[in-house]
Amino acid sequence: MAAAKIKKGDKVVVLSGKDKGRHGTVTKALPKEGKVVVEGINVHARHTKPSQARPQGGIVRAEAPLHISNVALEDPKTGKPTRVRFEERDGKKVRVAVRSGELIDG
């Protein structure tokens, strides 16, 4: 299996959809499904009936997963979207931003 180009904790830019152009941090990566959950992005509302666990009921808001192709890593230098390349530096495989050549912490 190929190495993950986007991981939990990465800063990303949304490329398409209702939140296009917004920036956020990956809170959860779902590599088997090819999706990521981004903080404050793709928020959906669910109307719930009152229950014992939630006696008030009401509207519950939660972030839904985005397909990994709809987000791009934020370049550490410019803040713009960038692709990711893998390089070997000091005997370690590291992620590098294609746009600026900056090392992505990891």
Rank of each mutant, 00 (worst) to 15 (best):
I68Y: 07
E74I: 00
L73R: 02
N70C: 06
V43T: 12
S69P: 01
P65I: 03
R99I: 06
E63H: 06
G101E: 10
T82S: 13
H23N: 11
T27Q: 13
I104P: 00
V38C: 04
R83C: 01
V43Q: 11
P50E: 12
P50S: 13
K35Y: 03
K18A: 15
G106H: 07
I6C: 02
E74P: 01
A4M: 13
E39D: 15
I41V: 15
G79C: 11
P31K: 04
A72K: 11
K8A: 13
V14F: 03
E74T: 06
G24K: 02
G91Y: 08
S69T: 13
K8V: 14
V60E: 15
I104T: 01
K92T: 05
R85D: 15
T82F: 03
K80N: 13
G57E: 10
I6D: 02
V26I: 14
K32I: 08
V12M: 04
E63F: 00
E74G: 01
S100P: 03
I104E: 03
K32L: 14
L103A: 05
R54N: 15
A72C: 09
M1Q: 04
T48R: 06
E39T: 01
Q52T: 04
K11I: 10
G79L: 08
G58H: 09
T78L: 12
R89F: 09
G9I: 04
K32P: 00
K49G: 06
V94R: 09
V60M: 12
T48D: 13
A97W: 05
I41E: 04
P76D: 10
V26R: 00
D19N: 13
G106A: 12
D10W: 00
S16N: 12
E88C: 02
Q56T: 10
V26T: 04
V96H: 07
P65N: 07
R89Q: 14
G57N: 09
G57C: 06
E88G: 00
R83Q: 14
I104A: 03
Q56V: 06
V94F: 07
K35S: 02
K20Q: 15
D75Q: 07
N42Q: 06
A97S: 14
T27F: 03
V12R: 00
G106L: 09
G79Q: 10
K77I: 14
A2Y: 07
E74M: 15
P76S: 08
K28R: 14
N70M: 08
N70G: 03
A97C: 08
V26P: 01
A29E: 15
I6A: 02
V13F: 02
G17P: 06
A3V: 07
V94Y: 04
F86T: 02
G17I: 08
S100N: 09
L30K: 07
E102D: 15
G40K: 04
A64W: 11
L103W: 10
M1W: 06
T25K: 14
V71N: 01
A29Y: 01
N70T: 13
K8D: 14
G101S: 10
T27H: 03
V26S: 01
V96C: 10
V13C: 03
R95N: 06
S51G: 13
H44Q: 14
E102G: 00
E74Y: 00
R22A: 08
R54M: 12
H44A: 11
K93R: 14
N70L: 06
I41C: 05
M1P: 05
T25W: 04
K77G: 00
K93G: 03
P81Q: 08
